[in-house]
Amino acid sequence: MKQTVLVGALALAGLSAGVAGAATLDDVKARGKLNCGVTTGLTGFANPNANGEWEGFDVAVCRAVAAAILGDPTAIEFVPTTGKTRFTALASGEIDMLARNTTWTFTRDVDLKFEFVGVNYYDGQGFMVPKELGVSSAKELDGATVCIQTGTTTELNLADFFRANNMEYEPVPVETDNEAQQQYLAGACDAYTTDASGLAAVRATFEAPGDHILLPEIISKEPLGPLVRHGDNEWGDIVRWTLNALIAAEEYGITSANVDELAQGTESPEINRILGTEGSLGEMLGLNADWAKNAIKAGGNYGELFEKNIGEATPIGLARGLNAQWTNGGLLYAPPFR
């Protein structure tokens, strides 16, 4: 097993090395679209709507990057990936970036040679069970069958949690959220475990969401965010600062509704630098001066994207919690634009 993991890591590293020399920004501009890896379908985060158009919280990050570079948030090819295929797709150059509820870990950063450019959702692993199971705590799941996605951090977290609590379980491996949902509803497993946000998203699609409960335990830290390949720092800077622009926009009150007006110039030097009316930040990135303006205009600032796709007024119903701005007790904190 260790040998397989090592070979897999070396293979991904080799793929990364093979494409790292290419200037990703030049490639995106030449083809006129961004290739963005997303999940195969997770309501609120990345899912095709009735018209076949991709939408969701993670999708919005892709659209912001496309808008920053090409001035068009629709100039994107969305590439659905599973827990198993996502890293190969990125390492091989099939996609330019991955925005797929992926946890930032040491080995993914260092061993697999990827660069996480920030966190767009601070999460943690939880458990969902049918209410009729009569369980109120994950510590009551000794001997349970558990649906779990392969190729994810949740596999190791689950093993660690059960071992630490001297409990046993039987894993029911699945590859996608859709398969997990089907298996769970069919009774193939007593519980389903993944990121708590993912559980809320899946439960929102059930015919009777109230028949299922999320247990109180959060057993891990899951900082989720977009990632790119090692070896192209300029490209990493573009994706990183586009995400930062969305976060900073909320802090400074820049919205999709007022961004055009504020782009005429304000008394705030920071807002002016973000929107390109002062300084030369766009030029430093190899982009137009209005790159951040276009990114924000594509769907709104971080808060607008959160509330529209996964917030408390949506069926998913997530509170901001750790994902609130630092000024409101959360962890969101964009570095200065200067």
Rank of each mutant, 00 (worst) to 15 (best):
I238F: 02
H230N: 14
E261A: 15
I254Y: 04
N244K: 11
E250C: 05
S256G: 10
E250V: 04
Q264S: 14
I254V: 15
L227I: 13
L227D: 04
A248I: 00
R229S: 01
N244D: 10
V228C: 14
E251I: 05
I238H: 03
T242F: 03
N233I: 06
A248R: 14
L262V: 06
N258V: 04
A249R: 01
L227F: 13
T242E: 03
A257E: 15
V259T: 13
A257H: 15
E251H: 11
H230A: 13
R229T: 10
G231H: 03
E250W: 00
L246V: 06
I254D: 01
W235C: 04
I238W: 06
G253S: 11
G253A: 05
S256V: 12
T255A: 11
S256I: 13
T255L: 12
N258D: 12
W235D: 04
D260R: 12
N258M: 07
G265H: 07
G236K: 09
V228Y: 13
Y252T: 05
G265I: 09
L243Q: 05
R240S: 10
I247E: 11
G265K: 01
E234M: 03
I254T: 09
Q264E: 14
R240P: 00
V259M: 12
A248N: 03
N244V: 02
W241S: 07
V228A: 14
V259D: 11
G231E: 13
R240D: 00
I254S: 03
G253L: 05
G236F: 07
W241H: 08
H230D: 10
D260C: 04
A249P: 04
Q264H: 07
D232G: 13
A245K: 02
I254P: 05
E251Y: 05
V259P: 09
I238E: 08
A245V: 00
E261K: 13
E251Q: 11
H230M: 13
L246K: 08
W241G: 02
T255S: 15
W235M: 05
D237A: 15
D232H: 09
G231L: 06
I254C: 05
V228D: 14
S256N: 10
I238K: 08
H230F: 06
L243D: 03
Y252S: 06
V228G: 07
R240C: 03
G253E: 05
E261D: 15
N258I: 10
R240E: 11
D232A: 10
D237Y: 04
L227N: 12
N233T: 09
A257S: 15
A263M: 02
W235Y: 05
G253M: 08
V239Y: 02
V239N: 07
I254F: 02
H230K: 15
Y252I: 14
D237K: 07
I238N: 02
W241L: 09
G231R: 08
A257W: 09
N258L: 12
S256Y: 01
N244H: 14
V228E: 11
I254G: 05
G231F: 03
I247S: 08
Q264G: 15
H230P: 00
P226F: 02
I247R: 12
E250M: 04
D232W: 03
P226A: 09
L227G: 06
E234G: 10
I247K: 14
V259N: 15
D232Q: 07
A248S: 03
E261L: 13
A263D: 01
A248C: 01
T242H: 05
A245S: 07
E251R: 10
W235S: 07
E234V: 01
L246N: 03
D232N: 11
G236W: 04
L262G: 10
E251S: 12
A245D: 00
V228R: 14
